[in-house]
Nucleic acid binder design. Structure first.
Lengths: 112, 112
DNA sequence: GATTCATATCACCATTATGTTATATAACAT
DNA sequence: ATGTTATATAACATAATGGTGATATGAATC
């Protein structure tokens, strides 16, 4: 169901793709410009860009023969949201963590 | 070099593992307790737990025959840090995004 | 019009990921 | 001592990932 989250986290799990995103934080860049820093062929970079695009992290324009990429404005929204929910769940329960652990310990003891 | 980031993002890219983390936000749980909600065998869950542990997202205790898991306190630190840096880079450059684009446009035009 | 440039896509290969079943092991209950 | 529970691990099948070289295509240049 939450496949877009899968795609976003998965896209970020590769160092090359994170580096591409960092480069794009500076501004738009073409495929060749993005490929330059890496010891990797152009098709490999094109694939990485496809992954980033499918994850909703970048967008591409057409400009003549070039396909300049830029960051998608709302790219990290899904990830932000999940992390936010997770942290809220954590905080909501952290206050009673000791209590929960005590209950569980008692439950285990009662089974003896 | 930043392999721990790879591991963390990769671990989060699976819905089952994210669900396990959400469950652990409530508090400690054993392997069988964690496996219960999923249509998946116990070895599969054990593997997911290993992935989460290697990514630094959970820790495990030994309690008799049980191996209760809980969230690692600093588990998301690496991810938070990267996202923070990324966003700062973005903001630092967003203010001059128009300028950058104009320069690039001029550069392209000059090549004509 | 021919050549070169920017990019995409295809066929292929190696590695990793994710699941299964079967089995081992240690702790617990009887 | 024996059976059961909790977990791990091994062996395996299958699919996904990430790279390569070869090649297609359309735009730019000469």
């Amino acid at each position: 169901m939450n496949q877009s989250l899968d795609l976003a986290f998965s896209a970020l799990s590769d160092a090359t793709r994170r580096a591409i995103l960092s480069r794009l934080a500076i501004g738009e860049a073409t495929v060749m410009e993005l490929a330059a820093p890496f010891a990797m062929t152009q098709p490999a970079i094109s694939r990485h860009l496809r992954v980033l695009e499918e994850a909703g992290l970048i967008t591409r324009r057409v400009e003549g023969a070039k396909r300049p990429c830029r960051l998608a404005p709302k790219g990290l929204a899904g990830i932000d949201e999940w992390l936010g929910l997770f942290r809220r769940a954590l905080e909501a329960n952290y206050s009673r963590l000791d209590e929960v652990l005590a209950i569980q310990a008692k439950r285990r003891k009662d089974k003896n």
